[in-house]
């Protein structure tokens, strides 16, 4: 079970990274968040014990995925694989994860809040409303049809702009 959860979480993490990049072309709120993001801000998202991880850095122009990060500005660690699975499969929102003590964080709280707003927007596009209504107190309206977001992300994977591997 853990292997399966770990596999799914690894895929979703790659998908989230791709979604953040593609939504910059589609949603004004995502554009605004990146405009305000300090250059060099980096995030490490680690899951459970030796679970999949995502390392990204905003270089002022793009959100680059990195193989690892020694000193991320903001380091999130989801406390267990079942929690990571719930979080990344739309069973638990980020604010619910906070409320349930699902993660630890090193760095500034403000940077988590930035990420939370971005993840909420990503989830609003990627998950159906029946799911998002359960995991968010207020679901952000999408500015374009969710299919456009999906199409751009899938095209990105098909053209090897994004990779599922490390």
């Amino acid at each position: 079970m853990r292997f399966l959860q770990s596999f799914v979480v690894a895929i979703v993490l790659r998908f989230v990274h791709a979604a953040l990049i593609e939504l910059r072309a589609l949603d004004s709120r995502v554009v605004k968040e990146f405009e305000r993001m300090p250059e060099g801000l980096s995030y490490a998202i680690r899951t459970g014990h030796n679970g999949p991880s995502l390392y990204v850095e905003w270089d002022g122009r793009e959100l680059r995925r990195l193989p690892s990060l020694a000193h991320p500005a903001c380091a999130l660690r989801i406390k267990s694989m079942p929690l990571a699975f719930q979080l990344f499969t739309g069973q638990m929102g980020l604010s619910q994860a906070y409320a349930r003590h699902a993660f630890t964080m090193g760095g500034e709280v403000a940077d988590v809040m930035r990420l939370a707003r971005l993840v909420n927007l990503v989830e609003a596009y990627l998950f159906p409303k029946i799911m998002t209504r359960r995991i968010m107190t207020d679901v952000p309206e999408t500015e374009v049809c969710f299919l456009r977001a999906y199409a751009r992300i899938l095209l990105g994977f098909l053209t090897c702009k994004y990779k599922l591997s490390k």
């Binding site: 809040m113 939370a116 707003r117």
Partner: peptide, 13 residues
């Protein structure tokens, strides 16, 4: 204010 951690668990976003 929107970057303050206290907002994350407010009953309304």
């Amino acid at each position: 204010a929107v970057n303050d951690g206290a907002l994350i668990v407010n009953p309304r976003a």
